[in-house]
Design a protein around this nucleic acid. Structure first.
Lengths: 106, 106
DNA sequence: TTCAGGTACTACGCGAAACGATACAGCGAA
DNA sequence: TTCGCTGTATCGTTTCGCGTAGTACCTGAA
């Protein structure tokens, strides 16, 4: 993998995309902007459309009949299930980790 | 990259290792077991030692004088700073995402 | 009208790194 | 002895992140 702008990644593009789509169907460009605002991470086109293709292939998102040149996607049931599961795991891990950090100060 | 046992990654090995070390210095094998218990993710040896080498190279962890054949590592100041930052970002992202999921049910 | 800039997607390729497989060594128990 | 656990290390494949460049359309300003 090539790290996410940073030296230690904490979220991969796929997760960011699913999270963005949890707020409603969006097309690629809108996902980029949403992710930029919400998470402060700018996805390049290569990253975004590559990840979108993989997510669709795995059945986590579905392409909607697009107007004009936009290609909107929405979450599938499997996608939101996976997302929910991952987000919970993420939150738990983060809480545990932060607790460990707090108690580890000498 | 090869995904993390799962189809959608939510934490990379480096972060899991740092989190584990936040609970105190550990050697490789102990990290594997700890991560398995805490996060339910099993790191293979290739993944672990590769990631350890990179983290040390970047100054986020430091090798301690090892007893027997164990090579324990501990967090450096930079490592725990990076970890704290990432964990907070992770928790925020997870909370936002879960909030979106909750309000998105029709 | 021309041109700059935003929108929206596609195509390509490099390089990082995840991960499985494998090997090896020491140790205690059966 | 053989088995299984501990502990570390290396190799090779393949995935995938990400940058770059290109296409195309639309709008508004100069």
């Amino acid at each position: 993998m090539a790290r996410n702008n940073t030296e230690v990644a904490w979220a991969d593009p796929a997760l960011l995309i699913l999270t963005s789509l949890a707020g409603g169907p969006k097309h690629g460009y809108a996902i980029i902007q949403d992710t930029e605002e919400q998470a402060g991470i700018t996805l390049g086109p290569g990253t975004l459309y590559g990840a979108l293709a993989r997510l669709e292939e795995r059945g986590h998102i579905r392409a909607l009949p697009g107007e004009d040149r936009r290609r909107p996607y929405e979450l599938t049931a499997s996608g939101s299930a996976v997302l929910a599961q991952r987000l919970k795991a993420m939150r738990n891990l983060a809480s545990q980790g932060l607790a460990r950090l707090r108690t580890a100060q000498p």
